[in-house]
Nucleic acid binder design. Structure first.
Lengths: 146, 146
DNA sequence: GTAAATTAAATCGTACGCAACCGAATTGGA
DNA sequence: TCCAATTCGGTTGCGTACGATTTAATTTAC
């Protein structure tokens, strides 16, 4: 790649970065009624898929360390989304489990996001294609960072 | 929109988020010798393209507010990358200009990043295609946030 | 059986992002 | 001309991200 192509607009890194921040902004708008941040919503997504996980397992799915998750989960516990309990067999583990509120809110939260999204009509095929390319990008980046 | 499409939307947002964080990690590795963070590198990219801009113009390119840029630019000033001077005609403006170091480091920084990247062979067509799709995604997201 | 190595979570320090707010400088209309 | 609205940078407060370190619990190696 030539130096002349190294403009901000031509940088894939900036484009991804920009898109990511717009997603954050969009979701924070949609999630505002629930007093949820975007990363907190990602935690809920992971738990809706598999409840009752130790912290480090959650961190693997989201690629977060304990230094990020610990304060985030404490805030979510305070708001009543989940519980944090020491593992019965292994006291080093902290088992994260959804509360009743955490479980039952799924429908309402999806509904709210759906409402925000469907105001625009987004082409599902375009979505699929972008998702596929991003996954390839992630694979490539992970190789760069091995 | 069906629940299955919600899954798609959720996957895409997480994928973009994940890719963005991997980029940050990669660049922080590559930029470490220069004591530059990733957002600071983005500022340099913008200034290499157009030096001597007021803060708010820089913010428009990067989609950053003064609350993000002010401390970031102060740190960059302290490290000798750029200068911050009040505008001559308009005293509200803060003109950001590269120092000699900021200008001349471009080659070395590009070289260092290139070195990290070319260890992998990245397909330029795939790069362009992903860039294009991300830009479309950004357009769609900006519509959602108008 | 116990000291060493390993693993898990928490803590610390630094640097973003961003909403909300503030104060100074400038501008534009009455 | 004069003052109200706007523009610009800065400040504050909160919530991530993440490298590095610390502390506590468990596993292992001898």
């Amino acid at each position: 790649m030539e130096d002349s192509d190294m403009t901000l607009a031509n940088q894939l890194c900036f484009s991804v970065y920009h898109a990511s921040r717009l997603f954050t902004k969009f979701y924070q708008q949609a999630l505002q009624p629930f007093e949820l941040t975007y990363p907190q919503y990602l935690v809920l997504l992971a738990l809706w898929e598999a409840d009752r996980q130790p912290l480090h397992a959650l961190g693997e799915q989201l690629d977060f360390g304990s230094n990020t998750l610990t304060p985030l989960l404490k805030r979510m516990e305070n708001k009543g989304w989940l519980t944090r309990q020491l593992g019965a067999s292994d006291h080093r583990q902290l088992i994260i489990q959804l509360t009743e509120k955490g479980r039952t809110s799924k429908t309402a939260i999806f509904q709210a996001i759906r409402l925000c999204i469907t105001q625009q009509n987004i082409d599902p095929e375009r979505y699929q294609s972008t998702l596929k390319q991003n996954k390839e990008l992630i694979t490539a980046l992970e190789k760069l960072l091995d």
